[in-house]
Simulated assay, not measured.
Amino acid sequence: MTLSTATPGTALVTGASRGLGAVIARRLAAEGHPVAVAYRSGAEAAGAVVADIRAAGGTAEAFAADVTDEDAVANLVADVAAGLGPVTTLVVNATGPQPLLDPTAVTWQDHLDQLTFFVKSPTLLMRAVLPGMRERGGGRIVQIGSDVIERVLPEMSAYTAAKAAQHSLTECWARALGPDGITVNTVAPGWIPVERHVDVPAEDRVAYAAEVPLRRMGDPDDVAAAVAYLVSPQAAFVTGERIRVNGGHTLG
């Protein structure tokens, strides 16, 4: 049985206790995946996501882990396999602080802080899930990127550089892992308001939406739908791509 026709396997979603990750976790559970809700902090919030999934008839468990730590990632993947089954779908979503910084004052440590989340963590996760995916004959890796790469925002230079590097990993992994039946893609959202944006003034949202060809803000469900497609059998021949989910905001 090939991956494209098999029953959905276990999906590991990092940073899934809130925000985009929580919505992605719920969507993949609705598609039939047992879902590992990975989180670094916020056990109560992670538990609520699991409860929602179970109440809807899905299968989920919460797993606490620091996905920037090599030993913690190895233990996470092993624990998920023991509790839900081998990981066949990995959604790399966890993120850290994204401070606005004067680009002329950015330090190497500022860059390292972003690279830790968007290069180190994805690399640790990919390497940890790879043996199981190879043994099963395939898998899906989806990285949550950003359209900030095209927006050229000077005060987000460190974040932008790390996000560009993250997608470069996607392309390299897609070529390297294709022979193993593993697809690797990036979903690059625009500004999608979630819990951490609750204090953003309404006028800022209106101004942003006015710049979007579709004339609205994006919704977390828009991002979750793109991820669900990429891990589905319908996307079995799609790899190395970067799908922007931003209403056309960065069109030339």
Rank of each mutant, 00 (worst) to 15 (best):
Pro193Gly: 14
Gly42Val: 02
Val23Trp: 01
Leu84Ile: 09
Pro86Gly: 10
Leu251Lys: 11
Ala164Glu: 04
Ala235Met: 06
Ala51Leu: 11
Tyr229Met: 07
Lys120Trp: 10
Val223Lys: 02
Leu115Met: 15
Pro189Asp: 14
Glu155Asp: 15
Asp71Leu: 12
Gly19His: 02
Phe237Met: 07
Thr5Glu: 14
Leu251Tyr: 04
Pro131Ile: 14
Pro154Ala: 11
Ala210Pro: 01
Thr68Ala: 11
Ile53Val: 08
His111Cys: 13
Val187Asp: 00
Gly19Phe: 07
Ala210Phe: 10
Val212Leu: 09
Ala226Asn: 09
Val129Thr: 12
Ala65Asn: 12
Leu214Met: 12
Thr116Glu: 12
Ala11Gly: 08
Gln114Met: 12
Ala202Arg: 14
Phe63Ile: 05
Gly19Gln: 05
Tyr159Gln: 03
Pro193Asp: 12
Arg151Val: 13
Val148Phe: 03
Ala105Cys: 10
Gly132Leu: 00
Ala82Asp: 11
Leu100Asn: 14
Val200Gly: 13
Gln166Met: 15
His33Gly: 00
Arg216Ala: 03
Gln166Val: 09
Asp221Asn: 14
Met1Asp: 03
Gly96Pro: 00
Ser232Asn: 05
Met133Val: 14
Arg127Thr: 11
Ala38Asn: 15
Ala45Arg: 15
Ala11Lys: 01
Thr7Cys: 05
Phe63Tyr: 09
Thr5Met: 06
His197Ala: 06
Ala176Ile: 04
Leu153Arg: 05
Tyr208Asp: 04
Glu135Val: 07
Met1Arg: 10
Arg196Leu: 12
Gly32Leu: 11
Gly252Arg: 13
Glu135Phe: 07
